[in-house]
Design a protein around this nucleic acid. Structure first.
Length: 863
DNA sequence: ACCTCCCGCCATGCT
DNA sequence: AGCATGGCGGGAGGT
């Protein structure tokens, strides 16, 4: 019902209008990125089914492909073109396609696998919409249309959309319809995810896993007990993949169907995957580790091979989409064992929970985000409202819904303050210049960007701000205010209280969000939610408002949180079978699951069994829950502050824009970082065109250091000390440092157990992996100077010096989780690994000497 | 031989 | 029943 309405609503507008123009800009950006070899050129309109693979692309296309194969640049262009084509000239493309196919060409033209890659498809998809769509315009997406135009099966579109949805770049309106939000909410989302990731202690988990691996490698007898123990506890938390889907205020899932869908696994997986990047210090995550964490492997041993493989497959899917978004880039981590596929975060640095850490020294990255302290304050507002217990009442839900709808309408209405221009202005006004012109323009842009990034960025930001939103996007406090304001207006909605009932599958928790200001809701299992919700406390940290930290629901709870959480989750799972993941959670079930993994059938059958029982249970519950469910399916949630996009975005947008504009060049964290009082904007401004490698970012060997939780996580850590972990990690660090294994700057994550093995330090070589040449080089972190790193705020202060114990400004947290974050990164020691970026060119850039180890950075052209 | 990951079967759930 | 979603993993292209 609702859906239909919505559809009707939007239908009229349909994409087409605004979007199109915007696309171009995007395309350009995209292009920069590494993109896989694509030739996206003429995808066209033919219907998917009909055309299917066999269909020939035009000869021209073939040529292009060939050429593109040769040169990345060309590739990019092609891509762009392809994008354009898809947009504009669908018809034309078609014609061309059909026109001539000769055998050879035809064959060649056959879309090779690569051409059909999800990554490429995603690029095409993204090209259709502006990064920062004008809210006033109708931005809805019709899946069917898209599938048709892109000439792919719908199934593939779902893959893309699901990931985008996890980032809140799109939200589902109704069946077959999604609304495009673009990157307006991205920063916010990332900030939220980071906070959640911190809460989940993903950094620690990663470390644990690495450590475990490392140990296993050479010493079997090692102390597993401790580790296992630790892991377990951690796992417990993560373990529940189902546990949550983080939602943002304006982006919540709307369609009931979506909400109801139990797992949302791809979405959840995607979020978790992103969290791993945000939380880990090197910001490089290997698929293996990600898979393990996502699986919630309780025991490595248990790992089911097939399950693992499946997870990996999914991660590739997600990674492809994220790569298309330029959020990550493929690299390889080389260890003794060999090269392992991994991905490096190339997206914007996010400040976790903005609120908290304000005062603390932030890493460069943090710094960027940092200015937000102001924002944080603002956030308080949100926090306040968010916390209270949520009650969920059908009537409320309904109300909310209606409000949302209204909101939507309103948004769509022209009234929105935002200027539409931004998109337009940013890209050329001309909607469809000739392809050539476009290409030329793109090239030009790229060149310009490269040549003058810094300036550009500076320039850009301001411009953007102006254009995009009425309000200046700059980090200034003003923004914060704005953000707040917006939400406030909406607040009523946001307030919607949900009542956590055992029945409800998930209870949304509203967290105050930092930067963006708006709060986000995480869907938790009831148990969890309960735990969390109440306390919400604030962390001691800086923010005046408690809410700041609110993000971490857990903290609030108490020290036991972790455990509790895990338990809770489990219990919840057991309680509500139906909800998210069918299997995993049940204690007993686990084993079972793995068991026959064999065939699908068997597997499925087993699942069915479980599900069946669960189902019944669910049904029963349903009866009770019914009403609420109907209205709002699971409790998911909602508040919305929607507008957020505007306010929040500003900041982000500026940042992002910079990124976008010059994909290649990321923000550079100044070496000095910690020390320098730079405004975020400034930071952003600084880019290094060529590439900088940050030693810090290097991967650590398993054992070695793991990324430490960011200092950012404010409250969480501080609020509840985790007894176990802290000490050990501290000890470890200390020990290592003394041994000289660790450079002062490097930190060991706080792993609970002492680390038996000494981490080895080795030279690390970084090779950029992406095909996109450009990108390869520009990595965001590079710190020329030793000692400085972007990484975390805490470390900043330390820089280089050796401190056995990490001192953090925050103090609170320090001990527990994070140890030091390395300030400068040059040191990354870690283990035996080295990261390769698969990029195309491998050039050895240079070697950095870090305190004890030297790093080699090289760009390599893999392909 | 391994890495990627496309493809599409088919379960799941809503309409 | 039909359609929309999307989990899942076989198996093939790439390297």
């Amino acid at each position: 019902m609702e859906n239909e309405k919505e559809n009707l609503f939007f239908e009229p507008h349909k994409r087409g209008l605004m979007k199109t123009p915007l696309k171009e800009s995007i395309a350009a950006n995209i292009v920069l990125t590494e993109i896989q070899p694509d030739f996206g050129p003429l995808t066209t309109p033919t219907k998917p089914k009909e055309i299917s693979q066999g269909e020939p692309w035009t000869p021209t296309a073939n040529l292009k492909m060939l050429i593109s194969a040769v040169s990345p640049e060309i590739r990019n262009r092609d891509q762009k073109r392809g994008l354009f084509d898809s947009r504009n000239g669908l018809p034309e493309a078609k014609d061309c396609l059909h026109e001539h196919l000769s055998g050879d060409e035809y064959e060649k033209s056959q879309p090779s696998r690569k051409e059909k890659s999800l990554g490429l498809l995603c690029h095409k998809f993204l090209a259709r919409y502006p990064n920062y769509p004008n809210p006033a315009v109708n931005n809805d997406i019709c899946l069917d249309e898209v599938a048709e135009e892109l000439n792919v099966e719908r199934r593939r579109i779902y893959d893309i959309v699901n990931v985008l949805e996890s980032l809140h770049m799109v939200s589902r309106l109704a069946k077959n319809r999604y609304t495009w939000h673009g990157r307006h909410n991205l920063n916010k989302t990332l900030g939220t995810l980071k906070s959640v990731g911190e809460e989940n202690k993903y950094a620690e988990q990663i470390m644990m896993i690495k450590k475990k691996e490392y140990e296993q490698e050479f010493d079997f007898s090692k102390t597993y007990s401790i580790e296992d123990h630790i892991i377990k506890s951690n796992t417990g938390q993560n373990g529940h993949p189902d546990m949550c889907f983080v939602e943002l205020p304006g982006v919540e899932f709307r369609a009931a169907s979506v909400n109801s869908r139990k797992d949302k696994s791809l979405r959840v997986m995607s979020q978790k995957f992103v969290m791993l990047f945000l939380v880990s210090t090197p910001q490089i995550v290997s698929l293996e580790i990600a898979a393990k964490i996502l699986i919630g492997e309780d025991h490595v041993e248990d790992l089911d091979r097939s399950k693992f493989k499946t997870k990996i497959r999914r991660l590739y899917d997600i990674a492809n989409v994220l790569s298309s978004l330029n959020l990550i880039k493929k690299v390889h981590v080389t260890e003794e064992r060999g090269r392992k596929p991994a991905f490096k975060w190339t997206g914007p640095e996010i400040s976790p929970s903005p609120c908290g850490l304000g005062p603390v020294p932030l890493l460069p990255s943090d710094l960027e985000a940092k200015r937000p302290s102001k924002d944080n304050c603002a956030k308080n507002l949100f926090s306040t409202r968010g916390k209270p217990n949520f009650t969920r009442h059908p009537s409320l839900i309904k109300l909310v819904k209606s409000i949302e709808n209204d909101r939507r309408k309103i948004n769509s209405a022209p009234s929105s303050p935002i200027k539409t221009n931004k998109a337009e202005s940013s890209r050329n006004s001309a909607p469809f210049p000739s392809k050539m012109a476009q290409l030329a323009a793109i090239c030009k842009m790229q060149l310009e960007e490269q040549s003058s990034e810094p300036r550009k960025k500076v320039k850009v930001q301001p411009a953007r701000s102006g254009q995009c939103k009425p309000v200046a996007p700059l980090d200034t406090p003003a923004n914060a205010e704005l953000d707040l304001t917006a939400p406030s207006l909406i607040q009523p909605l946001g307030v919607v209280p949900l009542i956590p009932s055992p029945l409800s599958p998930a209870v949304p928790v509203i967290l105050p969000q930092a930067p963006s200001g708006p709060s986000y809701a995480i869907y938790l299992q009831p148990a969890q939610a309960q735990t969390v919700t109440p306390p919400q406390g604030l962390s001691p940290t800086v923010c005046p408002t408690p809410s700041c930290k609110a993000t971490r629901s857990k903290d609030a709870a108490d020290a036991t949180t972790e455990k509790a959480t895990s338990d809770a989750t489990k219990s919840s799972a057991s309680t509500r079978p139906g909800s998210l993941l069918p299997v995993p959670e049940r204690p007993g079930a686990k084993n079972r699951d793995k068991e026959p993994a064999g065939e699908r059938g068997s597997k499925r059958a087993s699942l069915l069994e479980d599900s069946g029982s669960k189902k019944k249970f669910k049904e029963d519950l349903k009866g009770l829950e019914n009403v609420s469910t109907t209205l709002f399916p699971s409790g998911y949630l909602i508040p919305l502050t929607q507008c957020s996009s505007l306010g929040a975005e500003s900041i982000l947008s500026s940042k992002e824009n910079s990124n976008t504009l010059s994909p290649n060049h990321r923000i550079y964290s100044s070496p000095i970082t910690g020390v320098i009082p730079v405004t975020s904007s400034e930071l952003t401004a600084v880019n290094f065109p060529s590439f900088h490698v940050t030693p810090l970012k290097l991967m650590v060997s398993p054992t070695s250091v793991a990324g430490v939780p960011v200092g950012n996580s404010p409250a969480l850590t501080s609020s509840h000390p985790v007894p176990v972990q802290n000490p050990s990690s501290a000890i470890v660090n200390f020990t290592l440092q003394h041994l000289g294994l660790l450079s002062p700057s490097v930190q060991v994550s706080a792993s609970p157990g002492a680390v038996p093995v000494s981490p080895r330090i080795e030279a690390v070589s970084v090779v950029p992996d992406n095909a996109g040449t450009q990108q390869g080089r520009a990595t965001r972190y590079d710190s020329p100077a030793p000692g400085q790193n972007q990484t975390n705020g805490q470390s900043v202060a330390l820089t280089g010096t050796q401190q056995p114990v990490p001192v953090t400004p925050q103090g609170s947290q320090s001990v527990a989780e994070s140890f030091f974050r390395t300030p400068g990164g040059p040191v990354k020691l870690t283990g035996p690994s080295h990261v390769d970026f698969d990029g195309a060119n491998k050039t050895s850039v240079g070697t950095l000497f870090v305190p004890q180890r030297k790093l080699e950075v090289s760009t390599e052209d893999v392909h």
